[in-house]
């Protein structure tokens, strides 16, 4: 149960970014808790425990890190569908993106994002940012009770 709760879902299409993110998380001993999906559809499949994730252990991740620009279904759409779903709404979502666009920011917050982080160009800063993120959401933050989903 505990392991489920510490799981981080990372939705990111760029393998370089995936590697960098994982490296950053790894440096903080959080890498083995990360599930990586490469687009929005996969992210929703994972969250709804369907498709190739139909057999995954049940339970919501501690936090979802969403890139905005992804093939098929972009991050904002995934966010929107999560917040429209009663079971997924309590799951914290952090936008982890290159976009500093005001419109992306506004739209994300409008849809109920819990945090918005711009990926810094500098790798050290990037590692710092990801570490803070991982630590906060996966360790510090008290997640919503899991029986919520069971009831749903």
């Amino acid at each position: 149960m505990m392991t489920d709760m510490r799981r981080i879902l990372l939705a990111e299409d760029d393998p370089n970014d995936v590697e960098l993110t994982l490296t950053a998380l790894g440096e903080n001993n959080l890498a083995n808790e990360v599930v990586v999906v490469n687009d929005g559809v996969e992210a929703l499949d994972y969250l709804h425990v369907r498709g190739r994730f139909a057999d995954r252990p049940r339970g919501n991740p501690a936090v979802v890190l969403l890139d905005i620009k992804m093939p098929k279904l972009d991050g904002l759409e995934v966010l929107k569908q999560m917040k429209a779903d009663e079971g997924l709404r309590p799951v914290p979502v952090v936008m982890l993106t290159s976009s500093r666009e005001e419109s992306d920011l506004l739209e994300s917050y409008r849809l109920g994002v819990n945090a918005y982080v711009v990926k810094p160009v500098d790798f050290r800063e990037f590692i710092g940012a990801v570490r803070s993120l991982g630590l906060f959401w996966a360790v510090v933050n008290q997640p919503p009770p899991q029986n919520f989903r069971k009831i749903a």
């Binding site: 760029d14 370089n16 970014d17 960098l20 490296t23 905005i68 620009k69 993106t97 290159s98 976009s99 500093r100 666009e101 990926k119 810094p120 160009v121 500098d122 790798f123 050290r124 990037f126």
Partner: peptide
Amino acid sequence: YSVSHDLRAPLRHISGFVDM
């Protein structure tokens, strides 16, 4: 948008991988 998002990504990668 693409400049913001796409152009920065390779730089981040350069920077990150140089570091690594």
